[in-house]
Simulated scan of single mutants.
Amino acid sequence: MLAGPDIRRHLLREEGEVIVDEVRHHWIVYVLPALEAALGVALVLWTAVVRADLAWLPFSVGLCVLAHAGWRAMREHMDRFVITNMRVFRVHGVLSQQLATMPLTRILDITVSKPLHGRLLGFGHFCFESAAQEQGLRDITYVGRPDERDLAIQRVVQRSGLRGPRVH
């Protein structure tokens, strides 16, 4: 579990499904948990200069902040978006896990949003539009190399013959 979600167990091997790309979150999602962890360490270390009878307070708060930072980092680490030759799916969750799947046939449109800081740092956000009103696979945030990932999805859709032949 700590190494990451077991993506391969969700594949339809008998149907010939293979992974085209497994997308982890961009490193930027770990900045806030890292800053939070640094604050937790500072609070724990601060116990060395605080009166002995009050040292338990910054120590306890520091441990709580460290635990929260670890939880946030693990939550991001366990969130994966997967592109296969048949569908796209997202697996996320630390203790309990959720799986949201969308067959390639249901993808009507993909919007790639790249805010300024995302363009500078190399990440973007995907918004999938499908025939369904709301699905669990609508927004995929902090995707590294979003243009390459978008092209990978478009290639898989094109190769599967779902959009018809290319016109030259």
Rank of each mutant, 00 (worst) to 15 (best):
I153Q: 03
P146E: 04
E129D: 07
H26C: 08
V18Q: 11
G40M: 01
P103Q: 12
R138N: 10
P103N: 09
L45T: 08
D139L: 08
G144E: 11
G40Q: 01
P33T: 09
A37P: 00
S130R: 03
D21W: 03
R87K: 15
M1I: 13
A131R: 13
R90K: 12
M86P: 01
G4I: 06
A37R: 00
L116R: 07
L54V: 11
H125N: 11
A100P: 05
V88N: 03
R51P: 08
H68V: 09
L121N: 02
L137C: 04
L35A: 14
R119G: 07
A52D: 14
V167F: 15
R166M: 14
S160R: 15
L151V: 05
L66Y: 08
D147I: 07
H25S: 06
V156G: 01
V49Q: 14
G144F: 08
V88P: 01
T111I: 09
H10T: 06
A42Q: 10
R166D: 12
Q135I: 13
A38D: 07
F123T: 00
A152H: 03
N85Y: 09
G93P: 10
A73P: 01
R75E: 06
R106A: 15
V31S: 00
H25L: 10
L54H: 14
I107A: 13
V167C: 14
V167R: 09
T141R: 02
W56G: 08
H77D: 02
E148R: 11
E134K: 12
P115F: 12
V91E: 00
R87Y: 13
T105R: 09
G118T: 08
A152W: 01
R9G: 07
S113W: 12
R106Q: 15
L121Q: 02
